[in-house]
């Protein structure tokens, strides 16, 4: 599903964000990317979304080499990856339902289909009665659920959650992680970037540990057994 083959990323000012990173994530996997701030987790997301291009190496997403995707086709790549952004990226002048439904609007669905799917997805994330609220009216957990709902409504093949529990208390963090586990069980490949070691250790899933742009360890699920 995702292949990083000796990928390096050096920014213009000379910062090395990734240094010769290689890993492979299969379809349906649940993977944690862990590491301190500046380890390169968000850079991996930005490379996956073709927001930036690697300085060296090859990235393959769903059989397509990212660097070879023409500019016009980048939206198609992004539609394959549901993203929960670290800074949420919600539209504050739109309601919860509009924020979630916009992903389907982009796909060109009809308004009635959008309405139906939005209702279904909001119910899945437990926000069925918050559809008419605006983001500022939501709690931290509800905010995060809205972002997750927007990311999964299109039924993407991959879900990348960048620090989804970043600003949440422990209870709410677990609720979010359980929701992501539930989405993974439906067949979606889930990648969570986090530095919440407590959750990572409890779940006993594959963990790719990054530090200063390099992979320090790649502990597969089998190694916990």
């Amino acid at each position: 599903m995702i292949v990083f083959d000796r990928v390096s990323k050096k920014y213009n000012q000379g910062t090395v964000a990734l240094d010769n990173v290689s890993f492979k994530i299969d379809k349906g996997e649940f993977v944690f990317l862990v590491g301190p701030s500046g380890a390169g987790k968000t850079t991996i997301l930005r490379l996956l979304l073709a927001q930036i291009l690697p300085t060296k190496g090859k990235i393959i997403v769903d059989g397509q080499e990212v660097i070879k995707i023409p500019r016009k086709k980048i939206p198609d790549l992004r539609k394959k990856i549901g993203t929960v952004f670290q800074d949420f990226k919600l539209l504050f002048d739109r309601t919860v339902a509009e924020n979630v439904g916009i992903a389907l609007e982009i796909k060109g669905l009809k308004p009635e289909e959008i309405k139906k799917e939005t209702k279904k997805t909001l119910s899945l994330v437990g926000l069925e009665d918050k559809d008419k609220l605006f983001p500022v009216q939501l709690s931290g957990g509800e905010f995060q659920r809205t972002v997750i709902a927007r990311a999964i409504i299109t039924k993407p093949k991959i879900l990348f959650a960048d620090e989804p529990t970043g600003n949440l208390d422990l209870d709410t963090s677990w609720q979010i992680i359980n929701l992501l586990k539930q989405i993974n069980k439906m067949g979606t490949t889930v990648i969570i970037s986090t530095h919440n070691i407590e959750i990572v250790d409890c779940l006993k899933q594959r963990v790719i540990r990054l530090d200063k742009g390099k992979i320090k360890s790649d502990k597969t699920k089998a190694k916990y057994k």
């Binding site: 939206p75 790549l77 539209l91």
Partner: peptide
């Protein structure tokens, strides 16, 4: 808003 739309897969025409 435009940046967000682009990141979630909006085409230029959208």
């Amino acid at each position: 808003e435009i940046e967000i739309l682009r990141l979630i897969g909006a085409s230029n025409w959208f």
